[in-house]
């Protein structure tokens, strides 16, 4: 066979194989697309979990269990079965979550449950409404919140780890203990401290140890912080509304907790 003919023959063969491969891929496409979409949704949940921990857990609790006085649970049966009827929402739960999270809530639907009458209840999160998140991130958050459904309806159980005992050093250090009070008390939901929390409702506290000393003449930093927590109305930071920060921390915390919290905030400089 001459070279030309050999080339024609092999060329045809190669193209035929390529066509067979394409057909083979074609038969798998349905499957591939379904799996890919599932994996993509899984990826969205992973990203949403991360975002929730950073932005939302301070108010809604680390596992969406809610923090009394601050924000409602998002992982309980009520939220998945009755909340839509309660507010009269016509669309899906996903739409409700995306809409609520995107625009925030300037007025609570349950004012009696929140400190300060729930005004504002939740800041807007979508960049379109002045928040910090992109729409794809809001979508990922919704995917994550929706993924609580199985446990909320009792269709799945998840195990709990024994609460990690704080290391000996941590227990001895008031600043470390204060950080726990800060997170547990829900301060993280409203305040930002670099590396710890990212709340945007109240002033940034990353340098509060320094700022506090300059707030009021004749008032030491320590006293100012203590006052700000126990009696937030005493001095309202410029640019913020009074009565947003809960007024009852004085009753909620023990003296020890309060001391630790103040020590922790003083250390933020």
């Amino acid at each position: 066979m001459a070279r030309t003919q050999l080339e024609i023959f092999i060329g045809l063969l190669l193209v035929s194989i390529a066509v067979v491969v394409v057909i083979y891929v074609g038969f798998n496409e349905e499957n591939r697309m379904a799996e890919w979409t599932l994996a993509q949704e899984a990826g969205a949940i992973e990203v949403g979990a991360d975002l929730f921990e950073i932005n939302c857990s301070g108010c809604h609790g680390v596992k969406g269990e809610g923090i009394p006085g601050l924000a409602p649970p998002l992982s309980d049966q009520f939220f998945f079965t009755q909340r839509l009827q309660e507010v009269g929402w016509e669309g899906t739960l996903e739409d409700y979550i995306i809409a609520t999270v995107s625009t925030g809530r300037s007025v609570s639907t349950r004012p009696d449950q929140y400190v300060g009458g729930g005004k504002p209840a939740m800041p807007a999160w979508s960049q379109r409404f002045g928040g910090p998140l992109r729409d794809d991130q809001v979508h990922d958050l919704a995917a994550f919140v929706l993924n609580w459904e199985a446990t909320a309806l009792g269709k799945a159980e998840i195990s709990e780890l024994p609460a990690p005992t704080p290391g000996a050093e941590e227990a001895a250090d008031p600043v470390a203990r204060g950080q726990q009070v800060y997170v547990r008390g829900g301060c993280a939901g409203c305040h930002a401290i670099q590396g710890i929390s990212a709340g945007v409702v109240g002033p940034n506290l990353t340098q509060i140890g320094q700022v506090a000393a300059t707030r009021q003449d004749g008032v030491s930093a320590e006293d100012y912080i203590r006052e700000s927590v126990v009696n937030p109305g005493a001095y309202v930071v410029e640019g913020y509304q009074p009565n947003i920060m809960p007024q009852n921390y004085g009753e909620q915390f023990s003296n020890q907790e309060l001391d630790d919290l103040v020590a922790f905030l003083l250390a933020q400089e």
Binding site: E7, I8, I10, G11, L12, L14, V15, A18, V21, V25
Partner: peptide, 24 residues
């Protein structure tokens, strides 16, 4: 025509084959 033309078409077939197998 015809020697080099068939050769080039052959190379095109080879490339398409290699690309399809690679991406599949």
């Amino acid at each position: 025509i015809p020697d080099l033309l068939t050769h080039e078409v052959f190379l095109a077939c080879l490339t398409i084959f290699a690309m399809v197998v690679m991406v599949a």
